[in-house]
Design a protein around this nucleic acid. Structure first.
Lengths: 114, 114
DNA sequence: GCGGCTGCTGACAACTTTGTCAGTACGTGG
DNA sequence: CCACGTACTGACAAAGTTGTCAGCAGCCGC
């Protein structure tokens, strides 16, 4: 019975990890935790991501209540994404993980060095 | 060019998340952060996991330097897994995420309530 | 020797996630 | 009108992850 990670797990750690689970979610949240951004800005700022994946992940995060979609009433329809109040409660933990990740990259690079 | 999450990403947050990425890694680390455990103890304490998956994830975590494999010199060959010193630097962040996850489950349950 | 436990591996099917491609709708500028 | 930009969707294939199943080797008790 193969199970998607997206299912609600009784393990709270898994529940938290399922939010940020996805090929690009880490990077997306990293960007959005620094500043709100528009769809196309995000796409251009994340090398390698396709628009399809970006939008799918954004919709996941909106569904989970971490970010919100805001339509700007500008001439061309522009959409801005930003962290919600709830998302802001998660952000510090991600920043802590990010700091750990920096150390991890330092530790990993010399070993994996090409 | 579909890319595995396992690749080294320049984003430190992704690098950290790639460590705990896997269907059961959250639960496994949760268990091991509380106490060292043997393979079969872990298997029995995590409902739904298969031995195959457990061992694959344990090997991933050993490779990443988060946990270590220790052969106990007991009558039947017994193997214990425990966090390394490096893994202990990650554990507090996971505990913080776990605490957030508990809040998240509380928040999610009433909505998803079946 | 047989059955049971331990820890582990390989092959392969089933499933999930991601990427590719085409297409929608709206508005702007030439 | 056509090209371009924004934001987004659907269908589908490719690639990745997980599950299933069989099997190995060592040790124990009977």
């Amino acid at each position: 019975m193969p199970v998607s990670k997206k299912e609600i797990s009784p393990c709270p750690l898994d529940a938290a990890l399922s939010i940020v689970d996805g090929r690009w979610k880490g990077t997306i949240l990293w960007r959005l935790s620094q500043q709100p951004m528009r769809t196309s800005e995000l796409r251009r700022s994340i090398p390698g991501i396709t628009e399809r994946m970006l939008i799918r992940h954004l919709q996941d995060l909106v569904r989970d209540g971490i970010i919100e979609r805001i339509e700007e009433l500008a001439t061309p329809t522009r959409v801005r994404y930003q962290l919600t109040a709830y998302g802001l409660t998660l952000a510090p933990h991600l920043e802590a993980l990010c700091a750990w990740g920096r150390i991890h990259l330092e530790r990993t690079k010399p070993v994996n060095q090409k």
